[in-house]
Nucleic acid binder design. Sequence first.
DNA 1: GAAATAGTGTCTATTAGACACTATCTA
DNA 2: TAGATAGTGTCTAATAGACACTATTTC
Lengths: 243, 243
Amino acid sequence: MPTHSWSPPPVLLAVDLVILTLRGGELHVLLVERGIEPFAGHQALPGGFLNNASEDIVAAAHRELYEEAGLDAGRLYLEQLGAYGAPGRDPRGRVVSVAYLAIAPGLPEPEPGTDAADADWAPVAAVMCGDLSVAFDHRQIVADGLERARDKLERFPLATAFCPERFTITDLQQVYEAVWGTRLDARNFARKVHALPGFIVAEPSTRRMTRGRPAQLFRAGPNTVLSPPLARPAGSMTHEGDV
Amino acid sequence: MPTHSWSPPPVLLAVDLVILTLRGGELHVLLVERGIEPFAGHQALPGGFLNNASEDIVAAAHRELYEEAGLDAGRLYLEQLGAYGAPGRDPRGRVVSVAYLAIAPGLPEPEPGTDAADADWAPVAAVMCGDLSVAFDHRQIVADGLERARDKLERFPLATAFCPERFTITDLQQVYEAVWGTRLDARNFARKVHALPGFIVAEPSTRRMTRGRPAQLFRAGPNTVLSPPLARPAGSMTHEGDV
DNA sequence: GAAATAGTGTCTATTAGACACTATCTA
DNA sequence: TAGATAGTGTCTAATAGACACTATTTC
């Protein structure tokens, strides 16, 4: 029972970003090489402390997104994953980090000349299987971000956030295949995607490939929810709940 | 750009609990009457500050659950909803609250003699429509908790957490109807629930009603995921993502 | 015309939703 | 036996998944 003069313990608040993108048909996450202790020289998610006591948390996430990845919050999807604050997670003291999931269209390389000592895309699979180790509890955060992305892909037009402004049906299908780790039938996929009202809208233009028939271009439609959901095949299921 | 001697601003960390239960076929949330400023005398979610700098956040949630609602973490479902930390949300300073969703089986009354000046179940609908006002940003937190519960009900055996250890099919159906705010066909519901492997398992016993045929009792099965999901009718859809 | 990619149509098996009756108990 | 609740079966429409061909481009 707290005494009359008791006051709550202060903590330090940080943000961390799981920035997912698609490169060469494979899902990648942005990692930076830490310049300072702890874990100097190790790979970690981009992020950092709140700048000042009145900075909004999601604003801090946008700031770090820009500072460490050079990404502007234009067509970007950004959503809170949750708070990570286990007592021993940061040797500097009690640090609680609010993690955000960000989805970026396929980008050639992260911007140079930024805060981080080095920033590069890493295959999500390498982080998840442990081939690539990351600082703090960031592996868990990546796992949660991946799971969130997989879930939301079914019911929300999240997949278009992985694509450039104008994209083809095949581009979109590759997003689903990469995130879910499955193969989809192109005919059934196109049928369902076209049937979903407000998911994608056709552009007047087409995209020419080096070979083959040019593809119709689309852009993201106005709807914010996919109904009925695009069910993923019953293989790629996981669970993240705790009882 | 931070200077060399810059140090991050400290914040105060709190937990808040959205404790949902079912009373008389209606979804209720536990509210307490605040004993201290700010918002003294107003209704609010149970919660409070971290006890000390080394207390785990989810442990603090469990502690508050017990202190303010007398609920032990037995068959209880508890899951993090997210962090709420808008700069102006608490007049005492920069307070970041980590919200948790808890699901409790139908209970007669909250335990008396606890920390809160008064604790009582309030209909979720009254909070959501504004008939009952709550302190801080707690209305938003309740909304997010409700939405999370609605979503998870489809794919996870969450509904059993609303029920006592042994329950009937009708009990279970009423959970879905109350949380989704829809009516379901009892025949189709029973068929689907029975077909889902590991969702519910039959007990040898039955429950006698004051009138009518006794009902078969079940308990929660071993499975942690419902496949295929129990789709809710296409009416009760909402969106909580931000782009 | 050969190679590559885009785009579409059909058939079938499964599933979801509407629907009504029988069973078992109490008063 | 009347009232109340539990429990089940069938028909039909919609959906999902398997599957193959035509169309348009470059070289």
